[in-house]
Design a protein around this nucleic acid. Structure first.
Length: 493
RNA sequence: GGCCCGUUCGUCUAGCGGUUAGGACAUCGCCCUCUCAAGGCGAAGAUCACCAGUUCGAAUCUGGUACGGGCUACCA
C-alpha cells in the first residue's frame, strides 16, 4: 500500500481568488511527489461555488502555476482520461451519486430551515451539550414521504446518514500517522444544497475516486474534515486514498498567512522580481527538507528527491529575508550571458533605459554589466537603479555625492589628474583604467578614499556604485572624460 | 463548548534511546577593499514548551498540563 506503483495526485484550487503561497506550496509538494515517483499530477478546478468562482481567477491560477514551472499531466487545457477537470462540469455525476445514496438509505432529505438549525444550535449551546451539530431531526421522516415532499418542490437539502454504530473513524495519514475520530461526534452533514449543488466534502470524494487519486496531499486545515470524507467513501462503497496533511504556512505572528502580512499571492512575488525557481525552492523548504543541510534545491532536484516522509508536522513562518537571500543565490548562479538576457534586458527595457534586442547588439558590453551587477542584485528590478548612471550622456550628481565627495578639499585636483591620466589610454578597459589611476592618490598626496570618491561622484553621480574601472569601461572613454570635466565645475579646489 | 493537530536557536530545519544538540537565514565581529555589494573567517544564539513516568541512559518512548493552530457552514 505504501508503494503504489504509479501514484496519482492532484492539486485542487478553488478559483475564488489568486493563487496564494499556501496553495502554491501544496502544489509544489504534489508536483514534486508525482515527478519523484513517476506518478501523475492532476490539476482540478473546484468551482462548485458559482458565486465566488470566476473564469478569470482560473486563468490567473493557471498562469501562476506555469510561472512556477509546475506542469500538470491532466487538467484544464491539457485534458486527460479522467475529465472533465472542472467540478462545475461534473454536476450530473455528483447528482447521480447523491440519488444512489438516497435510494440506498445512506442519505436523506432534510427540510429544516436555516432558522430552525440556528435555534437548535443555540439550544444545544445553552444546555451545554458537547454535541452542537445537526440534531438529526429529519432522519425519522419516512423516506417515501420525504421523497414525495422533495419532488413536490419543498425546499430541502440532502444529508449523509452517519451510521449510528460506526464508532471510531481512522484516517491513515502519512505525515501524522493514524488519526482517530469518533463518528458519534460527526453530524449528518449536507452533501447537496437546496439549490441542488453538491458540497465540498462530497465532491472531493466523488472526484478523487473518479480520478483514481492515490495520495491526497493538502493543507492541515483539511485534516478535521477527512473523517467526513472517509464516511462518504464508505457510503459509496469506495476505498479511501492515502492522505498526507502538510503543515500550514503562517505569518511572523504565528497566525495563518493573510493579506495583512504583505504579499500573499504568488503573482505579487513575481512582480516584485523574484525568480520562480528560487521561489519554488523556498516554498519546498517550508515544511520539507532534503537532508537538513542543503538549502539550494532546484526543481530538478525536487523532481528527483522529494519524499513525503521528510515533511515536518509543525507550521512554518514565512520568512521574506531568507527568500530574498535564496533569490540572490539563484541570480549569482546564473551565467553572465544568461543574467544579461533574462534579468538585464527585460528589466531595463521595462524601465525605458534599453530596447529589446540590446544584448544581441552588443553581447560583450552586456556581459560585463552582468558581471558587475550580479553580486549586487537581490531582486531583478534592483538592476535598474544600479545601472541607471550608464544611460545618458551626463549624470545627475546627487546631493550627498556633491557634498561628501566633490566638496572635499582636493576634489578638483583629483578630477584633473584622472583626466590627464586617462586621456592617453588607447585601450579603455577596466584593467587599464585601474592601472592608470592607481598611482595618482600618492602623487597628489591624497587618501584613496578622497581620490576615488571624487571620481566616483563624477562618473556615477553617487557615493556607491559598481567598481570604477569596469563602470568607466562601460561608459566609454568619451563619456567618462566628459563627466570628469563636467564635475570639475562643482568640485572644490 | 466539543473534537483534532502541533511545540528543537529570533526564523526555516537536522535529529528518529547514548551527539560538545548539526546546518541555513537573520544578527554581531574580523579580514578583503576606492564606495556599495559579494566573498572568506569567526562569535553569539536552543535548560529541545512544562510536569511526571518508562529506562543504566530521553529532544527522541508513554501520560498529563500549558500555549498555539485547525475543524465544528446549505465556503473550499
Amino acid at each position: 500500500m505504501a508503494t503504489t506503483p504509479h501514484p496519482r495526485v492532484r492539486f485542487a484550487p478553488s478559483p475564488t481568488g489568486k493563487l496564494h503561497v499556501g496553495g502554491a506550496r501544496t502544489a509544489v509538494f504534489n508536483w514534486a511527489f508525482a515527478r519523484a515517483t513517476g506518478g501523475v499530477f492532476v490539476l482540478r478546478i473546484e468551482d462548485t461555488d458559482p458565486e465566488r468562482s470566476t473564469a478569470e481567477n482560473e486563468q490567473v491560477i493557471l498562469r501562476a502555476m506555469r510561472w512556477l514551472g509546475l506542469d500538470w499531466d491532466e487538467g484544464p487545457e491539457v485534458g486527460g482520461g479522467y475529465g472533465p477537470y472542472r467540478q462545475s462540469e461534473r454536476f450530473d455525476r455528483y447528482d447521480e451519486l447523491v440519488e444512489r445514496l438516497l435510494a440506498e438509505g445512506k442519505a436523506y432529505y432534510c427540510f429544516c430551515t436555516p432558522e430552525q438549525l440556528e435555534a437548535d444550535r443555540e439550544a444545544a449551546r445553552a444546555r451545554k451539550d458537547p454535541f452542537q451539530g445537526y440534531q438529526r431531526t429529519c432522519r425519522s421522516i419516512d423516506p417515501a414521504e420525504a421523497k414525495a415532499r422533495a419532488e413536490a418542490g419543498e425546499p430541502c437539502v440532502v444529508r449523509l446518514k452517519v451510521p449510528e454504530d460506526r464508532g471510531d473513524v481512522l484516517v491513515h495519514d502519512i505525515i501524522h500517522g493514524d488519526v482517530t475520530f469518533n463518528a458519534a461526534e460527526l453530524d449528518d452533514f449536507v452533501i447537496r444544497r437546496t439549490d441542488g449543488s453538491p458540497t465540498y466534502n462530497f465532491c472531493v470524494v466523488a472526484d478523487d475516486s473518479a480520478m483514481a487519486i492515490t495520495h491526497v496531499i493538502r493543507g492541515d486545515d483539511h485534516l478535521s474534515n477527512t473523517p467526513r470524507q472517509v464516511l462518504v467513501y464508505e457510503a459509496l462503497g469506495l476505498e479511501p486514498p492515502l492522505f498526507a496533511h502538510v503543515p500550514m504556512i503562517c505569518g511572523p505572528d504565528g497566525k495563518k498567512l493573510s493579506k495583512r502580512h504583505g504579499a500573499t499571492s504568488v503573482e505579487e512575488w513575481r512582480d516584485e522580481g523574484y525568480d520562480p525557481e528560487a521561489f519554488v525552492n523556498y516554498l519546498a523548504l517550508l515544511g520539507w527538507s532534503l537532508d537538513g543541510e542543503t538549502t539550494m534545491v532546484s526543481r530538478a532536484t525536487l523532481a528527483k528527491e522529494f519524499s513525503l516522509d521528510r515533511i515536518s508536522k509543525n507550521p512554518a513562518v514565512f520568512d521574506t529575508k531568507k527568500l530574498q537571500w535564496l533569490n540572490a543565490e539563484y541570480l549569482k548562479a546564473m551565467g553572465d550571458e544568461e543574467f544579461a538576457r533574462e534579468v538585464l534586458e527585460p528589466q531595463l527595457t521595462a524601465a525605458g533605459l534599453a530596447e529589446a534586442g540590446c544584448v544581441d547588439a552588443n553581447p560583450a558590453w552586456w556581459s560585463l554589466l552582468a558581471e558587475i551587477l550580479k553580486p549586487r542584485t537581490k531582486l531583478a528590478p534592483d538592476v535598474v537603479g544600479l545601472s541607471r548612471f550608464l544611460f545618458g550622456e551626463g549624470v545627475e550628481i546627487d546631493e550627498k555625492a556633491r557634498a561628501k565627495a566633490l566638496g572635499k578639499e582636493g576634489a578638483a585636483a583629483a578630477l584633473e589628474a584622472a583626466e590627464a591620466a586617462l586621456l592617453p589610454l588607447e585601450r579603455f578597459t577596466g584593467d587599464e583604467i585601474d592601472a592608470a589611476l592607481e598611482p595618482l592618490p600618492d602623487e597628489l598626496g591624497q587618501s584613496k578614499r578622497v581620490f576615488y570618491q571624487a571620481i566616483r561622484a563624477a562618473e556615477t553621480g553617487s557615493l556607491a556604485s559598481p567598481p570604477l574601472g569596469a563602470s568607466m569601461e562601460l561608459l566609454g572613454k568619451g563619456r567618462s572624460l566628459k563627466r570628469l570635466e563636467a564635475a570639475l565645475e562643482l568640485a572644490s579646489a
